[in-house]
Design a binder for these strands. Structure first.
Lengths: 340, 340
DNA sequence: TTGTAGGCGTTATCAG
DNA sequence: CTGATAACGCCTACAA
């Protein structure tokens, strides 16, 4: 069932059908109605591939997500999707995991753009630092990177970025813990190969420690795999091996919750005998017991800024930008003062 | 940069390039290498739309999700994606929310299939009971519905289904609570218009109450909007208005957690002075404090069954089926006996 | 206001 | 083994 069939059935030419389909004004009402009727009767749906193939301004914005199952991304995605629809574009979501390819996110990005004929892209997460400039240059549409590592050499000729200062956020978080009297401060990162975000945050952690002349203990730096289970296991091992630890700074709320369970299982009351600090500001933290103290990333704002910026870029009203947003410490119940 | 350019640059015909692209064996090694080199040099990526337009067995399986942000679906999705890749297909994810259309999921489904030229579809959630048989009949590819309401008139001529018995699960859950000595049992549903799952579960709840001659109190049936915040508000209102309630059965773990917060805020210790029962068996429940007693849906199994069934269907080795899987009560710490 | 025809980038068929 | 060429379904000049 294609446009030709519809044309035949309605007794008109294909272009008329096409015009009806695309809401062109220059079709007589009768003709339009007749065609519409046939379309409905046949449950005809135009073939998208052919459409895209033909015209190349389909008002599609691509969203490339690394690890869609990260709840922080999910929350941002909701806002991004709404935003894209609001400005009259269609969102095309594509997600990938690192293991599904040779860590070459640049290739994924380029394929995505070419395949889908996108007018712009937002990348959520991922590590594009290894992509050669040359490759970026060949991309002719605007790109906005968000939630990527902020230390990456930024070239606003090539792309825009909306992010937080990961190092600073972790630095301030650690400082906060130190000022609460803690000295044995452990940090839980994502995974070893996550060159981006984890790396920046551990730098901030170390800097704060340094500033207060607290020696850095390698044993206090552990990996939690960005999920409940590995975080739980990792925390259990950590706290058993180093019982002097009084606070754990987990680099994501999910890991914090996993680690919190390990703490209770080990007999500690979180927020009283041991402290726990998260990162992200997920909704769940508010409803967790004890309510999770955490570093909030301005997810909503980041999402909105991405859309706003991208539209400006697509309409060529604006040059590439590097937007850095502020994080915020949300004090709830999971961090207490160290009572020496 | 298209296949023609590559052909010209490599000094071969388009068909040869196409053959290289598709790993056809009948190309001389030298030729292949030369073409490959040019492709790499030009960073050429074939146009997917054209590809799809042309051939119509692209080994694409569509996954149509209602509310991708439901964590239970996220967990299933992980497994589905892996499964689809394992059998050599590509997953195309499409999600929608009810508000984005006139509640007409059938149309979404049909458009999705036609646009993407799918070989099979898995629908996660949604309500397809209103879709006319006629429309289903016009679909020529296998469809597997999962996590949909199980009371829907099933026609295995038209589609397959993998689900749980929602009514029975809720019945048994309620019975469990009654046998724990509870009499004032409240239930929190998703939303009023969710004709499917919520509806079936409340039926099970009422049936159990009936069986034990416990009167049904309309005030005990509330809506929690499937999210923390509304569940929290709703629970707070409920427990303030009806303080005699000793247990709340929330129809999703997320709502249970939201409601749990309301309970603590009201001064109750969950699992001691008041009980809380969830539904889904999300990972988070295990790490929640107190560990959440819940009805586990066999998400992994459901996902795997969907894939297995769909492959059989696509390869025409099997007829449509209606698979009903067992739920399981996971007793943790959030439900206690009623001490009259 | 409507119809005809060419082309978008691929793949498949069929000669060579 | 390789190359021309005809589809695939749609959109859009251009012509009527």
């Amino acid at each position: 069932m294609n446009i030709k069939d519809i044309a035949k059935l309605s007794g008109v030419g294909v272009s008329t059908v096409s015009r009806v389909l695309n809401n062109h004004p220059d079709v007589k009402k009768e003709t339009r109605d007749k065609v519409l009727e046939v379309i409905k009767e046949c449950n005809y749906v135009p073939n998208n591939s052919a459409r895209i193939l033909k015209s190349n301004n389909m008002k599609h914005i691509g969203v490339l997500v690394k690890g869609i199952f990260n709840p922080f991304f999910s929350e941002m995605l909701k806002i991004i999707e709404t935003g894209i629809n609001d400005i009259g574009y269609t969102m095309i979501l594509h997600h990938y995991d690192t293991n599904s390819l040779g860590g070459n996110e640049g290739e994924v990005l380029i394929s995505f753009i070419k395949e889908k004929r996108l007018q712009g892209v937002i990348c959520l997460g991922g590590n594009f630092s290894k992509i050669e400039e040359e490759r970026f240059e060949e991309i002719e549409i605007p790109i906005v990177l968000t939630s990527v590592d902020s230390h990456m050499k930024i070239n606003t000729k090539l792309f825009s970025r909306v992010c937080i200062d990961n190092k600073k956020a972790a630095y301030e978080a650690t400082k906060y813990l130190i000022e609460k009297g803690h000295e044995h401060i452990a940090i839980m990162l994502g995974d070893e190969f996550d060159a981006g975000v984890s790396n920046r945050r551990v730098m901030g952690y170390m800097e704060a420690l340094d500033e207060y002349h607290i020696p850095i203990n390698k044993d206090y730096i552990v990996m939690g795999g960005y999920d409940f289970e590995p975080a739980y296991e990792s925390a259990k091992k950590l706290l058993t091996a180093s019982p002097e630890i009084t606070v754990l700074f987990a680099i994501s709320d999910i890991m914090a919750i996993g680690a919190g369970k390990a703490m209770s299982d080990l007999g500690f009351t979180v927020g009283k005998e041991i402290s726990l600090l998260g990162f992200d500001g997920l909704n769940i933290g508010k409803y967790y017991t004890p309510a999770l103290t955490t570093i909030e990333q301005p997810g909503k704002q980041m999402a909105e800024d991405c859309i706003d910026l991208l539209v400006q870029l697509i309409e060529e009203k604006e040059a590439n930008q590097n937007i850095i947003l502020e994080t915020r410490l949300i004090e709830r119940k999971s961090v207490c003062n160290f009572k020496g």
